[in-house]
Design a binder for these strands. Structure first.
Lengths: 324, 324
DNA sequence: ATGAAAGCGCTAACAG
DNA sequence: CTGTTAGCGCTTTCAT
């Protein structure tokens, strides 16, 4: 900047004004400065700008895993909003490990990001308190923060969606509906279990519930156990996209009535098409990012909790006749 | 840092040493400093560190679209290597727009990232020359840089993979094999066309080639045209994952012999399973990131060009009997 | 409309 | 093993 200034025959501050598009520079002077910038191939050192101004124009995003289509969709939507606001996105995958979640958040904070969007892996977020007081904007997505932390949160209607799936199967005559889902320590899994249970009412039978991380072998074992029951399930409700795919694989073509939570690519091309309760990851990302920038603009108010709707997509698997 | 220093009764530099784990601090002094850090809730200002040291400990990644499973897998692998090296990842999607690619790269450079991994959208990368001279490490992935720019590049054996697919179909008796692929302006598409053509030799017929972006309607039209030919194709070779899925959808269950480039989730559960030439996006990301850190360590030498192998996975669709 | 001076928080270089 | 000094490149504040 100093070099540009002397090349253009102005003071350093004038160059700063031109670079930042600040008013109060004579058009001709500005032109001269721009010429010098081009000539020298100058580009502003953002680190210095950040150090002085305090604004990094950077947003941090912590998710479970970018390689998961759900979070990939969410990431892309967040990224688009972030770029639109002239900021850049630092992102990291926690891999469902609370320690890693915390490390990522703290590293982002050390870099003084303006705001953070977190899909939490753990359930203790008291470590965020200092950052929140320091003015870092935080939005939780997909899952709410742990007790004692009150920040904007965007989730979907997990219980309602699960209930919708169960009602759909009941309307097709099923009374024995199994639920295969993630560990209920994960918020979304617990909520979906709640919706499943409420929609079943007195038909609820804990023997039909199996919750754990969806390994192929584990799901196979669970299905074997379920179908070996005296009163086996006539339909399945799977608790997330990965679970649905693993279950379909374990079923090896057996035509069992099934509704899955989460839509996924090619669900329509399966035979039969897979009926799902779909959520919209891109929508969730967009809403979370916009909420964040809303806060950044200082438009305060108490922490908001947005609940996004889900959507039943009927494709065939949920409407199969009861087996045997 | 100043506050921590006076709280611990030491000089600022000593705090700096402790924070950076530099040797030459008495364990007891270090302990006192750490206590002061905890007490005050101090965390180093990274922007200041960057301004002074010049190292941002940040890597930039430009891809087409995180929401595409191929790039999502690549991103995750890059991220893992980056974190392992104590760095953070700034990422952005170009959406196949050369302008956006360039903007992202330039923005990353303005932030003085230590290195950049680029999946290029355009084919003119002369704008990188200044950055390269300034010492920014750059690695291209999936596609090579345009003319005149010589940097490390990681690609897969596109032509070889396409040839492998064609040979597989020829071994199953096909002589009329259509190719549905992306616009040949995209490097990978052009290479796959080349491999297809070479493997067909005198059987090559331009009437069986259709290259454009894979819109559902476009693919439907192309298939209609191909199957209406006097001498229609008996098998299809699709040029990438998205194309394969779109084609399967357009086929509406018709059992046409098909081999696709790129593996995809649920390819094994289709009826029949989809035979593919698989590449490994995570491997590509890992190799690209490691190449980048190799450069960053100053272990020079001329620009490398790594070509990753592909892998034919036989699942049924490529071995179907010739229709009719 | 332009400029001079101060200083953001840290690390590099050099003393002691 | 510890401390002092300078200054990274910019924005802020205040002056002209």
């Amino acid at each position: 900047m100093k070099d540009v200034a002397s090349a253009a025959g102005v003071a350093l501050k004038t160059v700063s004004r031109v670079v930042n598009g600040e008013p109060g520079v004579h058009p001709e002077t500005a032109e001269r400065v721009r010429a010098a910038i081009d000539l020298l191939g100058y580009s502003r050192n953002e680190s210095a700008r950040v150090l002085r101004s305090g604004r990094t124009a950077t947003i941090g995003l912590v998710i479970e895993d970018v390689a998961d289509p759900f979070y990939a969709g969410l990431s892309r939507a967040v990224e688009d909003v972030v770029i639109e606001h002239g900021c850049l996105l630092l992102s990291g995958s926690s891999g469902e490990e609370p320690t890693r979640e915390r490390e990522l958040v703290e590293t982002f904070c050390a870099r003084r990001v303006d705001g953070i969007i977190v899909v939490p892996a753990g359930d203790d977020h008291t470590y965020l308190r200092a950052e929140l007081e320091a003015g870092t904007a935080v939005v939780f997505a997909d899952r709410p923060p742990g007790a004692g932390i009150d920040v904007d949160t965007v989730i979907v209607d997990n219980a309602g969606g699960a209930a919708r799936a169960v009602r759909h199967l009941r309307e097709h005559g099923h009374r024995r509906i199994a639920f295969l889902g993630d560990d209920p320590a994960i918020f979304t899994a617990a909520e979906r279990l709640r919706g499943y249970r409420e929609a079943l009412g007195e038909l609820y039978d804990p023997a039909l519930v199996s919750m754990r991380s969806p390994s192929p072998a584990g799901v196979r074992d669970d299905l074997d156990r379920l179908f070996a029951l005296d009163d086996p399930p006539t339909a399945l409700f799977t608790g997330n996209g990965r679970y649905t795919m693993t279950t379909l694989r374990a079923l090896r073509g057996r035509r069992v009535p099934l509704v899955g939570f989460d839509d996924f690519e090619l669900a329509d091309l399966m035979e039969p098409g897979v009926t799902v309760v779909a959520q919209d990851p891109a929508r969730m990302g967009k809403v979370a990012a916009e909420l964040l920038f809303h806060r950044l603009r200082g438009e305060g108010g108490p922490a908001e909790r947005v609940e996004l709707p889900v959507n039943l997509i009927v494709r065939g698997s949920g409407e199969l006749p009861t087996p045997r």
